[in-house]
Design a protein around this nucleic acid. Structure first.
Lengths: 264, 264
DNA sequence: CGCTCTGTTGAAGGACTTCAAAACACGTGG
DNA sequence: CCACGTGTTTTGAAGTCCTTCAACAGAGCG
């Protein structure tokens, strides 16, 4: 394994990136360093604090509750829960999903460090989806009532938050067109490119990463069956576009991948 | 034609609902009554003013520009346009769409009276979709910078606007699950039920209405071909669920329609 | 009245699903 | 450390739902 350095991306985000361990869980130092703050967070230029000055960030810091690290499979909140807070991911990744009337789940999104979860509960004060950690993870909890209050004082914060919601709407529209008109191969190409770009945003390798979700999760998200996901991955590998080894993805030909979805 | 009274729903929204005309366009009085205001608008309990008191509504009124009526096919704004305002629909309906790299369009949404358009431009200050009138229509234009400013003064307005955005996100998630897991018949049932509920909100008949969009529009929106839309409509009619006569829809069995999409 | 856009319907084909079986990975406990 | 069991992934074969292609009918508008 020549690429051990990238084995677990969260290593890079953790407090002591030098420590490596094979299990990926036991030895790693707790990412919940009590000294963390928005101004010290390496994600601050992707997250809510963008465009805030130091004083403003300090005020935002004051209302943020940095909760305990979460284990894989642990829920952040569930469908129907009362809405109290939105959450910014510090480390790890999450999926959101809903349960259909027949009891089977439908994945509605994947979330990575620096991204905001919980906005599904703003409208009617109850969450409309459930959110679960796909790996060890940690989040910043931002009580919404306090965010609203602070937003009234800090114009920049208010605008920033509204922009984040606006961006969510644009992303949802993009997913809408993807689901309504893309082939299975286009959907998966687009999915991989999205992950790649988001890993790059976190200063992680854009062409070699781990899928923390199952094939079934991906299928539910993209409107495909898990078998189709698997088959398309295999076909892409055969074409020399990617290398798939279990959950490990190597993007070999980014340009051709982009061509598949129609991005020049 | 026993149902002439419902022939054109916009009649009911117009200033003088008593006037009837066969063309649906020539005789109707101009909906752009200069006397209109949020407080006088019959849609005020669906639109941005919800939960505002009279003084607050007056302030909102002051920043709203009531633009001229629009003709069918006229664009409100286009993809890539600078973002200046959001728009509340007074009368008529719109569709939003994007043009793919190959030049063919993908419908991303339909909008009805009381609903807000233009939030696709908030994030990066340029619109990500185009919006076009599906029939004669009129809108209230709300310059975004002024809305932001006013929102800083009026807490209720700020919350209301954020709630509208949150609601948009929830609706997009619902569409996501629809596109990723529903059959063609379920998609169309869900679509008709959505239109029905929204017409009811406008005090219009929930079980007899006009589709102002083409089969192709519906298909692009739901991820189906226009032929499939047509076929499923025919099949639903054969089953006694609906009556379709060109663009006129009668919902005959609401309960069974809901059962198709899994709503008890 | 005739043109064009829209909608319907049929027949054939294809992309993805479904069902099924086996291989593989991973965590647990011996 | 290995054996085992569960959950995940791969791959195949058959089937299905929807699409594509095509022709025609109807509606709307000059």
């Amino acid at each position: 394994m020549t690429h051990q350095a990238y084995r677990d991306h969260t290593d890079i985000l953790a407090a002591s990136p030098g420590t490596e361990d094979k299990s990926g869980e036991a030895v790693r130092p707790c990412p919940q360093n009590p000294a963390i703050s928005c101004s010290g967070c390496r994600l601050s230029d992707l997250c809510l604090p963008i465009s805030l000055n130091k004083g403003e960030i300090r005020q935002l810091d004051d209302i943020i509750e940095r909760s305990r690290p979460m284990r894989k499979g642990e829920h952040l909140y569930r469908q129907k829960d009362n809405f109290r807070s939105i959450f910014a991911i510090r480390t790890g990744s999450f999926k959101s999903y809903v349960l259909g009337p027949d009891g089977q789940s439908r994945v509605t999104g994947f979330y990575m460090p620096g991204e905001i979860m919980g906005m599904d509960g703003i409208a009617d004060r109850h969450h409309s989806v459930s959110t679960v950690a796909l790996e060890h993870a940690s989040v910043c909890e931002i009580p919404f009532s306090q965010l609203e209050k602070l937003g009234q004082q800090l114009t920049n914060l208010q605008s920033r938050f509204i922009a984040i919601m606006g961006n969510e709407i644009v992303k949802d529209q993009h997913i809408h067109t993807l689901l309504s008109s893309y082939s299975a191969e286009q959907r998966l190409s687009s999915f991989l490119l999205s992950l790649s770009a988001r890993y790059a945003r976190c200063q992680l390798s854009p062409d070699r990463f781990i899928l923390h979700m199952t094939r079934s999760d991906i299928g539910e998200y993209l409107g495909l069956t898990l078998e189709t996901v698997s088959r398309i991955f295999s076909a892409m590998q055969k074409k020399g576009l990617i290398n798939v080894r279990n959950r490990e993805i190597d993007i070999l030909d980014m340009a051709r991948l982009k061509a598949i979805v129609g991005e020049s």
